[in-house]
Simulated scan of single mutants.
Amino acid sequence: MSDVLRDKQFWDMTDSFIQLANTHLNEVKPSRVSACALFAASRFNAFVITAASESKEQLIAEKRLRSLISSTNTKKCCARTWMSIWRATTSTAVNWQEMDRALSF
C-alpha cells in the first residue's frame, strides 16, 4: 500500500477541499465549481513553484526552458502527424527514414 493511501492528513485535506467545493453547488453548476477548483489548483501550484525558486532569474530561466521544450515537442508532434497524413494520402516515393531524421529536432 502506498504512503499516500495511508496518509490520513492527505485524505483529510482532500476531503476538506471537496467539502468546500460542495458548499458552492447550491449557487452554481457543478461544472463551474470544477473549473474554479482546477483554476485555484493551478494558481496554487504556480505559487509553490515560485516559492521554490532561489531567485527571480532562476524562475525566468526555468520558465523559458520549459517553454522551449514544450514548443519543440509540439512541433515534433505536429510534424509527425502531418507526415503520417501525407504518407496515407500520397503515392509519391519518399525516403521516410531521411524525413524522420530531419524531424529529430
Rank of each mutant, 00 (worst) to 15 (best):
A79L: 08
A79G: 10
S31Q: 13
E62N: 03
E57C: 01
K76G: 05
T23G: 06
A61N: 09
R6S: 10
S71F: 00
N45C: 09
S34N: 10
A35N: 08
F105L: 12
R101M: 15
V48T: 02
Q19V: 13
K76D: 05
I85S: 03
R43K: 14
A93V: 11
T81W: 12
L103E: 05
I60F: 06
F105A: 03
M1K: 05
A46D: 05
S42F: 13
I49V: 09
I49E: 03
R87E: 01
T81S: 08
V33A: 06
T50D: 03
E57Q: 08
T89Q: 13
F47E: 04
S34D: 12
E27P: 01
A102D: 13
Q58F: 01
V33M: 04
L25P: 00
I18V: 14
A21Y: 09
L65D: 08
W86E: 07
D15Q: 15
W11N: 01
I69M: 03
A79C: 07
E98Q: 15
W96L: 02
N22C: 15
V28E: 09
T72G: 02
K29G: 10
Q9H: 07
L103I: 04
A35W: 14
N73E: 12
T74R: 08
C36L: 09
A37E: 09
N26G: 15
T89W: 03
S104Y: 10
T81R: 10
R43F: 13
T89P: 01
R101A: 15
T89D: 07
L38S: 14
D100F: 05
D15G: 10
N95W: 00
R87Q: 15
T74A: 12
D7V: 05
W82R: 10
A93Q: 11
R66S: 12
I85D: 04
D7C: 01
F105H: 08
R43I: 13
I49K: 07
S84Q: 11
I85N: 12
I49D: 00
R101Q: 14
K56A: 12
A41G: 13
A93P: 09
P30K: 04
V94L: 00
I60S: 06
K63Q: 07
L20I: 09
A88G: 11
F10V: 04
H24V: 07
A41I: 10
S31P: 04
V94G: 02
